[in-house]
Write a protein that binds this DNA or RNA. Structure first.
Lengths: 202, 202
DNA sequence: CGCATATTATTGTCCGACAATCCGACAGGC
DNA sequence: GCCTGTCGGATTGTCGGACAATAATATGCG
């Protein structure tokens, strides 16, 4: 009959307030956040409370720290931070490697199409270079995996669509360990990947 | 020439420690976390420090609270929490609606294929029902958007691949507001979506 | 055994404190 | 003129303790 009336602890309200300001571009990227004491003063809460709010934003990638720096800056989530969260979620959802592989297979043609329709010489060169690197390095197992990842990333960036770039990351991250095993164990894997890459480049 | 030597504040080390235990299924889903005081005792840090660590895990969706509850439980990131993070990242990456649309277009055929190869009568029925609901409700703008989302979600679940399910969510979330506008403004949008859905169902 | 009630435990928030260290300014030497 | 060393202030990380509100649990009663 009645909705539970929403109560939110202060640390949540603070973090929401800051998050909104960031999303509405009110706090711009690269800008330094006010100091904790100052935030505490403005929100009229204790510094401990502010700190809890900051930790939340920090872990969603909206706030970051410059290397060796002390103060917090507004950042946008990097590919890595988004990828980390997503791949973490996928591992907890009992995602099998075949699922990841299937997803990558399913998505790549679409990405390739976008990339093709929007290609630039530079992007194409980078893509071809990645393919050549993979094909050229027959011996080294770990580098081969990196080369495959590079190829996918180059493709994503060639599509000039941030969605594809961001989606690629977590899938690759999950795939990498198994891909290494596959390349070692399945003799024809290399050749198949090579032709697939050539096909996409063409 | 030299790597920066890694120092991690205590609240980070604590949160990492707990996160690891969760990812390695040492702390199982649904299990209640020890109390803050107990964690502080075990890690030999102050409760405030533990709380900062908990806020981080909370916002990455690894810890949650039962409705109206006080203690924290181990949870796995829901579709919503993952989607929220991703769509937030996308908005900050200046993603335009066309990008989202393009991505959805590119991904759906692949999903449809997986779903088809693995279809069950129940999933197929659900998919068809969603398509019928959309086709049947010509007047209502907001419900139409929901129906489209339902169709995509049904398709994702029919594929029985958690990757697709998780990827769908953030894209839909970003698309929804604009989709409403499009349906209002572009007369042939409805018809196009209808035939696309029918095509996929077939 | 089910339900109302009293106890306890736990969280949310506050305060104050202090060491470490980053930052900016400033002076001195090559 | 630029690099280095020094210094004071500002800021963060961490701590200890405190207390109100309330969820969780035990207790008693019909």
């Amino acid at each position: 009959m009645f909705e539970p009336l929403g109560y939110a602890p202060a640390y949540l309200r603070v973090s929401e307030a800051i998050r909104e300001r960031i999303l509405r571009r009110d706090l711009k990227e690269g800008q330094a956040l006010p100091t904790e004491t100052e935030l505490a003063r403005q929100f009229e809460v204790n510094r401990s409370t502010v700190r809890e709010a900051l930790r939340k934003l920090e872990s969603s990638g909206l706030l970051g720290r410059r290397a060796g720096g002390k103060r917090l800056y507004v950042t946008r989530p990097t590919r890595e931070s988004v990828g980390g969260g997503l791949s973490q979620a996928l591992t907890l959802h009992e995602t099998r490697v075949v699922d990841v592989w299937e997803a990558l297979q399913a998505v790549q043609p679409g990405i390739a199409q976008s990339a093709a329709s929007r290609r630039t010489p530079a992007a194409l060169a980078r893509l071809a270079a990645a393919a050549r690197r993979f094909a050229g390095r027959r011996a080294d197992r770990d580098h081969a995996v990196e080369d495959v990842a590079d190829f996918f990333n180059a493709l994503g960036e060639a599509s000039d669509n941030p969605v594809f770039v961001l989606l690629n990351e977590p899938l690759l991250r999950l795939l990498k360990p198994s891909l290494a095993v596959i390349i070692d164990r399945v003799p024809q894997a290399r050749a198949r990947i090579e032709t697939a890459q050539k096909h996409i480049v063409d």
